[in-house]
Structure formats: C-alpha cells, structure tokens
Design a protein around this nucleic acid. Sequence first.
DNA 1: TTGTAGGCGTTATCAA
DNA 2: TTGATAACGCCTACAA
Lengths: 329, 329
Amino acid sequence: MGAGKPATIYDVAARAGVSKSLVSLVLQRSPRVSQQRREAVLKAIQELDYRPSTAAVSLAGTRSRTIGVVLDDFRNQWFVDLLTGLREALQDQGHRLVVADRFLNTGLDASPVEGFLSMRVEGLVIAGEPDTDLAIPASTPLVIAGGRLSIPRADTVANDDRAGGGMAAEHLLGLGHVRLGFIGASSAASAERRSGFEAAVGAAADVAVTILPGEATEDAGSRAVAQLLDDHPDVTAVFAANDVMALGALSELAARGLRVPEDVSVMGYDDTPLAATRYVGLTSIDDRSVEIGRGAGERLLARIADPGLAATEVLVEPRLVARRTTAAR
Amino acid sequence: MGAGKPATIYDVAARAGVSKSLVSLVLQRSPRVSQQRREAVLKAIQELDYRPSTAAVSLAGTRSRTIGVVLDDFRNQWFVDLLTGLREALQDQGHRLVVADRFLNTGLDASPVEGFLSMRVEGLVIAGEPDTDLAIPASTPLVIAGGRLSIPRADTVANDDRAGGGMAAEHLLGLGHVRLGFIGASSAASAERRSGFEAAVGAAADVAVTILPGEATEDAGSRAVAQLLDDHPDVTAVFAANDVMALGALSELAARGLRVPEDVSVMGYDDTPLAATRYVGLTSIDDRSVEIGRGAGERLLARIADPGLAATEVLVEPRLVARRTTAAR
DNA sequence: TTGTAGGCGTTATCAA
DNA sequence: TTGATAACGCCTACAA
C-alpha cells in the first residue's frame, strides 16, 4: 500500500525477474509475451502497486494521448452534456481528457490553452465562444464545440440555432398563438435564434421583438419581457433566446399577475437542468450538447489522424421539449 | 507560431548562445543569472514560442506541483465555489489544479484517483462523500472537502451541518412559526441538519419529520412534503435538507394551491444558484463552499509540507440567506 | 519471445 | 555566473 516512493518499471522488472522492456510490453498489452512472463509481471505490478508515470510515458512515447478541453465557465451547465459526448468519442479511443475553465491555473500558465500546450496535448476542444484571440499553433488540432465564431483552421460543431428558432415558431403557431414576442440579448446565438424564429413565423403571425444589449441574465429577461409587454400588451406567447432569460420572464410575468401558460406562454432555449425541473417546467429547445460533444470528439480524432483535413462546420439539429409553460391559445 | 515540433530547451539554448542549464535557470527565475544572458534567453524563448514540457519537468524535477481534485459529479454546482477557494489557496502558491469527476477517464484509468496517482500529484482533494473505498496510498496527502465521511489519515473540511440546522430553526422560530416540518433523505448531511434543527427548536415548537429513504431529488421533496402535510396539516414552515428537495416541496405546495410564503414558508440548504434566482427566491443556508475550498487547500499545503501532520477536522460555519419563500406567520 | 541500449526534455549536481 | 553530465521513468528500435 503506502510505499514511500512510487514503484518504477525497474522495480517491477527486478521483482518479476525480467527486463524493463518486457514489462513495457506487458503494459502495452503486446500479444508477443509468453503467458508465464506476463503473469509474473502482472503479479509484480500488483504487489508493488505499480502505476506507470504519465510524465515518463508521454516523454518517451510518441504521443501524449491527451486532449485538452477548454470550458468558458464551469457555471454554464451545458458543458456537462458536452463532456459526456466527448468522453464517448475520445476516452473510449484511449485518449485522456483534461478539462479546464478559463481561469483554472491562470497565473501558473498564462491561460488554460498555454497549460495544455505545455502538456503537449494532441488536440484541443474549445467549448463555447473562444473569447480572446487565443494563440494556438496551427499544428495543434482544434475544434470549436458549441460556438459559432469560427477560426479558419478549426472545425466547428454547433447547435443549429436557426433551426431551433424555427422549431420554437412552429410550436407556438401550432398552439394557435398569433401575437408572438421574442426577447434576447446581444449574442450571435441569440441573433440566429431570432432570425430562424421570424423566418419560420413568416406572415402567419406578428412578432414583437425586444433585444436588450448585454449579457443574457435573468434580470435582463425580466426587463426585456416588461418592455415587450408594455409596448405590445396583446402578446400571448414569448420565446426567449435562452432559458435564463426565460426564467426572468417568468418571474416578471408572475409579478404582473399574469399566469403561465393560461395568460402567456413562455419558452426558452438550451434545455438547462433548470428548465427540466418540475417546479419550473419550462418548454425549451434542447441543443443536444451530447451530440455536439460526440461530433466534436470524432472530428478531432479525424483531424489528429490527418492534420491536413479541411475545416468543416457541422450543425446539430436541436429538439423541442414541450413542458408546462406553453399551452394552446 | 505554427512550428512543426515544439521547441525544446536545446533549441532555446542554441539560439541564445548559452547552455541548456542556463536556460533552465532562467526558467526557474534564478537570481544568479546575468541580466544580459537572461534577456537573450527570454528573447529566444519568445521567438521560438517555447514552452517547457510539463512531462519533462515533472519527470526530472523533484515535485510535480500538481494537485488532483476529484469531484463527485460535475452536475453538483457546489464544486464551482469549492474550486474558487481551492484556486486561491493552491494555484496562487504555484500549484497546478487538475479536476476530474468520478467518470472522467475511467476506462483509461480505473478511476480518476488512479489517473492522478499516475500523474504523481503532490496531493489530492476529494470533494463530497468519497463513495467507493478509494485505495489511496498513505503517502499521498489527502483532504476531504465537503464530506463528513472521514478517512483516518485524511483532513476534513466541511460545512457545519448541525449549526446550519440550528440557523434554520432560529430563522423560522424568529418568524413566529410554531408548527415546523423537516423533510430529508437518507444522507449523513441530512441527518446532521435535522439533528441541529431539532436541537435548536427544543421545546419552542413542534417538529414534524418526514425522511424519505434514497436520493435527495426534486421528486423526493415533493413526495416528502406531501406526506408531511397529509400527516400534519397544521405545519406552517418546512425546512428541507437541501435546495433540490425544497424545490420539490415548492412545486407540490403550488399543486395543492398553497401559497408560499403566505400559507407555508419553505427553506432549503446549500444556497444553490437555483435558490438565488429571482424566480425561485428560496431562503437557504449557504454552506460557504468558497471557504471550504480555501480551507481544504491550505490544509493540503500544510500536509504536503509536513506529511507527518495529524489529521484534523475543520467545520466551516454556514450562513443563512433569507429570501422570499419564508415570512412571518 | 526476450534483452540491450539509446533517447525523450527537463532538473540537479558538480565543476569550472 | 556558467556549463558538463548524470539522473528521471518509460518507449522503441535493434539484437539475441
């Protein structure tokens, strides 16, 4: 158990009475090792509680088998599903995932990306909008997951916000609403969702729009819906660019004594855990982060295998999840 | 920019016209390097976009300067604050933080802990309840953050659940409630919170209790409060062992046409982001995860410095956050 | 099938 | 203040 210094491959070799190369072969599951030796080595490994040093492995080996994942913020829950998808695609293929948000280890490394480059990761996944102009060497395979802002040489896998906006429109129109509202903030995603929404509505209904510049916060949602209703009191259904703003809308509506969905239907976007709670029960658009993660992982794998690959942009079809905040007119 | 192979310390040395040792000294900010040489080296580093290989550094060096953080589940948002505290204590002291949840990289490594041991981390932080009997060598400094289940040789830094329960009691009693309810699940934390709650209530009020065996889910909260009210219709204030169950309680109360807080006050525990939203506005107990993280980090640092230290158990005083789900009787 | 030897990119220990 | 040179723990030809 608690050895002072961790055992090395030398210790294992000595104890098993073989050479270090033989141990190395066993470690790599090489088939050309006699059953007898293999067992002896395995036994020694067990007894010594040996664990190969990742540092030594990646130094000596040709590849680090490590993928760096840069999250924008651990608070944005969508990364959880993204990671699930990434794991499926990557770690099952023998790659180790290392995650960091924008601030993890800053100070030691100038940025998480710097840290990953020091680790000699074989590839990088940037989740969300790559905020700063991150200086990533062209030689590092890179894929942007969930962000639209595309870097020339990077693959992009993202939710089809336009399509999602369209789904929202169809849902509300299908429920018989003809006075629609859209609230959003100043982000590329918000703009896309709005545009898809309006395009799908077409001439079938009126759409009142309130865009509040700045962050998509709950408070912004409250203020946006307040303004929307002040200007257009006849609106019966509101589509928020994201769940957080939708939540703000819900509280503002409650404050005004308007019932949801009896008086006003509300829907969001992202299908966050929040929306899925029974208490909130928000109709939303699932951006299918698991698929995005899987797609990003597969794409990264392909790019690692062939660095010369042209950058592609994959859009993942979202999915509407109807809950209790939307109802027929 | 986009070099094929990353530059090595040799490249830097050659370009700066010095030995590798000199470069190494500059890297380590050694004061005994002439200004002239230092600048030449720095310039070469810049021009070559050189970055020391962490693998080589930790192989050759005496310490890895890496701390492993094992999270129970990325979905439990409390780790975000915990990380903030850990960063303050650890990464500012030159330690690199690597985080993993229970499932990250399983398959490659048997468990995240195995992975960390392979990385030769200098210390380990286990966040939450260490579920399985994780086999951690006694030589690895270890601290449990936020969990009560203590391992003999590990330090523990956790929220004082008993005290928090007491605060909940004082709050509700102070509001004039005399028919109290407690709902919880089968966890050590829940039990502690209940016990603190009941102790603080003493003879000042009646406490009806419903414990549902199993996980602390929203649904469990709904069912628990339903049972509680069926058995004790006169209860005017409910203290849930955690925010998630409190949320379940809120939706059940709404379903029964009971207003919060006019008819029934509700409070939770953990002060999750959910509770802090305007829409939910749940009165809760803040378990001060940032402090727990900081404390855990400091403790780990001390233990790394002196492995012989006796294990300690630190309890962090929680804090009540009053919002709109509780009101005077 | 197994062993020998060299090298991976650093740090660390001595000399100079 | 600087520079050789030996580790560090493992992989990978190459040889046996």
